[in-house]
Design a protein around this nucleic acid. Structure first.
Length: 591
DNA sequence: GGGTTGCATGTTTTG
DNA sequence: AAAACATGCAACCCT
């Protein structure tokens, strides 16, 4: 470590770096050695923005408008030249090419005012123009230059509103390089767009970019208190066509990230959804992009729905404020049983287990298998061989430490991994089914980061719940409290004989409350339906304690006995209360 | 009697 | 079809 020198020009950090990272490929073979700071910027795709933002060589992707730095080794593989001139993000180019390769038609019935042509979507629901072919790709890039945005259906033409035209966000991010890292890298870079602080970069006046932008409004978004704004211009089309299966059935919040791609119900007046939209707390400029995990086996195998969706700016800010790097690992939408009273959070297998294939690869490449080494093939949790598993300690936003039992049990010929004892933590964070927990790691140190995001539709109601948590967080957390990617975890500091069950000292005090709440969180719904209550529906059922009290009226005839408890007056009735809403009497002027 | 644990089973998703 | 996952449920444990 001591003899290394950072290969970023003008950096040349030597022994000062706590950790060394790998950068770009060198002509001489191998990878560039970067100090921690530079390596982190490279790994998180803001190398150019960070280190030579003011240098010349920035150009605009003709397709998405993202600023690309063309004069730098770090961005060398991140752009390509268009036949018609100009440059494009590799991600954009590949994406368009991909759609040419896999067109599938859907009925024109699906597209009101579809001009008699069928919308062409990818076989995985990509939105495309009218039978785009290779020639049109050429035109496409031309049109971008000429600002003629008509090769892809516009929302107003194809009525490509929220009921049509969705693209799987993940698809755009899928790696297509041999090792799955090439495009992955590039796609993320593409998704970074205006992370650059230069405000007017990456803003093509019109053209294809507008089309994408017009389509890229999130169908369902998470709200962030954070005022941070950023643009991810990655080509995704949330809010559009729901994929075939989803068109006919829209299981609320059930299928992980998919739920977010599903067209939300029309906002009810006064509901959070509507107000959310009005507030614009999450705009296009804060589009959440699924990131393949930056490293580890998840990069190769983790299902896209578990890809963390922290925004670049959140990442950058977190990394900066904490003077460290946050490596998003995975996230999971809580199922009813995850959030239920059993206190078992089912972990995606790919996050918990190193497959034999990966092991094989790691052997081939002589990589050591290490529980938390950042440069190795790894699962996000330490390998366990005993069903009882091991306790792992987690620290939350308040510095509170939780201990979960990471364990598994046999399931068919496989294993099912769970974190046990999460109930106190979940309750502490006031999470419920449909909310998302995120796991990241903080480097250096390899600490796990566990955060959460609340589901969209209950944001308004939950804001009040969130505030105490957010505001009570670490000072560094406050500015991005709503980001919620913020449980800094003391990972893998497991202790063998620690009590299982995610209890902290504070929780021992809270325990009576937790126990009583357990009954409230009992799972509802039958197995056959497996419905997680849609948050919006749930809102209709949720009432505050005050609301509930309003519904309870003393029997009209009963007279209360006044009881003083700690200087508070309580009315005691012999009769049971009457259930009903308080009556409001009104009188007209006429009487 | 109620809670917990360990596993089984049904459903959904993926390839 | 296989794998992954959500949840049901019986056996056991605790109060």
């Amino acid at each position: 470590m001591g003899s290394k020198i950072c290969m970023r020009e003008n950096c040349a950090a030597t022994t000062s770096s706590p950790e060394w990272k790998e950068g770009w490929s060198l002509k001489s073979g191998g990878l560039a050695t970067l100090c921690y700071q530079c390596g982190s910027a490279y790994a998180n795709f803001f190398f150019c923005e960070t280190f030579h933002q003011e240098e010349s060589g920035w150009r605009e992707c003709k397709i998405c408008g993202k600023q690309i730095h063309c004069g730098c080794i770090a961005s060398k593989y991140m752009h390509d030249f268009l036949d018609s001139g100009g440059v494009g993000c590799i991600g954009c180019i590949r994406d368009l090419e991909t759609r040419l390769v896999r067109p599938v038609q859907i009925s024109s019935n699906d597209i009101p005012n579809g001009h008699g042509t069928s919308m062409v979507i990818g076989d995985e629901n990509r939105v495309d123009g009218d039978n785009i072919n290779k020639a049109k790709l050429m035109q496409l890039s031309k049109s971008a230059e000429e600002n003629q945005p008509n090769y892809l259906p516009q929302p107003q033409n194809g009525d490509l509103d929220s009921s049509n035209g969705q693209i799987k966000q993940e698809e755009n991010m899928l790696p297509s390089g041999e090792d799955g890292t090439g495009l992955l890298h590039l796609s993320q870079q593409c998704g970074r767009s205006s992370m650059s602080s230069k405000p007017d970069r990456g803003r093509p006046s019109s053209g294809i970019r507008e089309m994408y932008e017009s389509l890229a409004q999130p169908s369902s978004v998470f709200s962030y208190n954070s005022p941070l704004g950023m643009t991810n211009s990655v080509l995704h089309f949330p809010g559009g066509v729901v994929e075939g299966r989803e068109k006919s059935k829209v299981p609320p919040m059930q299928q992980g990230q998919r739920a977010r791609h599903i067209l939300p119900k029309p906002p009810k007046s006064g509901t959070s959804t509507g107000s959310q939209a009005n507030k614009g707390t999450v705009s296009h400029s804060q589009t959440r992009v699924a990131r393949p995990p930056a490293e580890g086996r998840g990069r190769n195998q983790l299902l896209p729905r578990y890809w963390p969706r922290i925004t670049d700016q959140e990442l950058q800010q977190l990394s900066g404020d904490l003077n460290s790097t946050i490596v998003p690992l995975f996230e999971k939408v809580l199922s009813a049983s995850d959030a239920g009273r059993i206190g078992r959070l089912v972990l995606p297998k790919a996050c918990a287990e190193v497959s034999s294939y990966i092991l094989f690869l790691s052997l081939l490449t002589s990589l050591a298998l290490s529980p938390c080494g950042s440069e190795t093939v790894q699962a996000y949790f330490p390998p366990i061989s005993q069903s009882e598993g091991i306790p792992i300690r987690v620290q939350d936003i308040k510095g509170k430490e939780w201990t979960f039992q990471f364990r598994f049990w046999p399931n068919n010929n496989s294993r099912m991994y769970v974190l046990e004892g999460v109930t106190p933590c979940i309750q502490n964070m006031q999470l419920q089914a449909g909310d998302t927990v995120t796991f990241s790691r903080i480097d250096p140190g390899g600490k796990l980061v566990m955060g959460f995001r609340r589901a969209t539709n209950s944001v308004d109601m939950q804001e009040s719940q969130t505030c105490p948590l957010s505001n009570g967080g670490l000072s560094g957390e406050t500015s991005f409290s709503g980001v919620s990617e913020s449980l800094l975890t003391e990972t893998f500091g497991w202790r063998k004989n620690e009590t299982r069950g995610g209890m902290t000292n504070e929780d021992l005090l809270q325990r009576p409350m937790l126990i009583s709440e357990k009954k409230k969180t009992r799972n509802i719904g039958s197995k056959s339906k497996r419905l997680l209550m849609h948050n919006e529906d749930a809102m209709e059922l949720r009432i505050t304690w005050e609301d509930a009290q309003e519904l309870l009226c003393p029997p009209p005839s009963a007279k209360p006995t006044i009881v003083m408890v700690e200087n508070y007056e309580f009315e005691e009735y012999d009769e049971p209360p009457v259930f009903g809403k308080r009556t409001i009497f009104t009188a007209r002027a006429s009487g």
